[in-house]
Simulated scan of single mutants.
Amino acid sequence: PVATPWQQRAAWTGYTTALQAQGAEIDEIDIFGRECAVTLPGRSKMPSHLDDDHALRNWHAQLASRKARHWRDELPISTEVAADWAERPALLRALEIVARHARADSTITPWLTVPWLLKSMKITHAALPCLTIGDKALRRAPRDAQTIIVRNLRAFADRAEEGLVRLQALEDNRLRAADAIRDAHRPGKLATLLSLMQFVPVASPRLVAETLYLTISGAGKLLGRAADLDLVVEVSGRQAWRTYVARDLALSFGFVQRSVGRPLAPPKYSANLEPVLQVFDREMAELDAKLASLGRAGPVHFPGA
Results as ranks from 00 to 15, higher is better:
Pro1His: 09
Val2Glu: 02
Gln7Ala: 14
Gln7Cys: 07
Gln8Lys: 09
Ala11Leu: 14
Tyr15Gly: 06
Thr17Met: 02
Ala18Glu: 06
Glu25Cys: 06
Ile26Asp: 01
Phe32Glu: 01
Gly33Leu: 01
Glu35Pro: 00
Val38Lys: 02
Arg43Cys: 05
Lys45Met: 03
Lys45Ile: 10
Ser48Arg: 13
Leu50Gly: 07
Asp53Glu: 13
Asp53Gln: 14
Ala61Gly: 02
Leu63Val: 03
Ala64Ser: 14
Ala64Leu: 11
Arg66Asp: 12
Asp73Cys: 02
Glu74Tyr: 06
Thr79Gln: 09
Glu80His: 05
Glu80Ile: 03
Val81Trp: 08
Asp84Ala: 14
Ala86Phe: 07
Arg88Ile: 04
Leu92Asp: 13
Leu92Thr: 08
Leu95Ile: 09
Glu96Val: 11
Val98His: 02
Arg100Gln: 12
Ala102Glu: 14
Ala104Lys: 14
Ile108Ala: 05
Trp111Ile: 06
Leu112Phe: 08
Thr113Gly: 00
Lys119His: 12
Met121Thr: 06
Ile123Gln: 01
Ile123Thr: 03
Thr124Ala: 04
Ala126Cys: 04
Ala126Ser: 13
Pro129Glu: 03
Ile133Glu: 03
Lys136Tyr: 01
Arg139Asp: 02
Arg139Ala: 09
Arg140His: 05
Ala141Cys: 03
Ala145Asp: 04
Gln146Tyr: 04
Gln146Asp: 06
Ile148Glu: 01
Leu153Ala: 01
Ala155Arg: 15
Ala160Asp: 15
Glu161Asp: 08
Glu161Gly: 08
Gly163Lys: 06
Gly163Trp: 05
Leu170Asp: 03
Leu170His: 04
Glu171Trp: 04
Ala177Arg: 06
Ile181Asp: 05
Arg182Lys: 11
Pro187Lys: 03
Gly188Ile: 12
Ala191Gly: 11
Ser195Pro: 11
Ser195Cys: 15
Gln198Asp: 14
Phe199His: 11
Ser204Met: 12
Pro205Trp: 10
Val208Met: 01
Glu210Trp: 01
Glu210Asn: 10
Glu210Gln: 09
Thr215Tyr: 06
Lys221Val: 05
Gly237Asn: 10
Ala240Met: 12
Trp241Gln: 07
Ala246Phe: 04
Arg247Gly: 07
Gly254Asp: 02
Ser259Glu: 11
Pro266Lys: 08
Pro267Val: 04
Pro267Leu: 03
Leu273Cys: 10
Leu273Thr: 07
Glu274Ile: 08
Pro275Thr: 02
Val276Gln: 09
Ala292Thr: 15
Leu294Ser: 10
Gly295Thr: 01
Ala297Glu: 00
Pro299Gln: 07
Pro299Ile: 09
Val300Pro: 12
Val300Arg: 09
Ala305Phe: 04
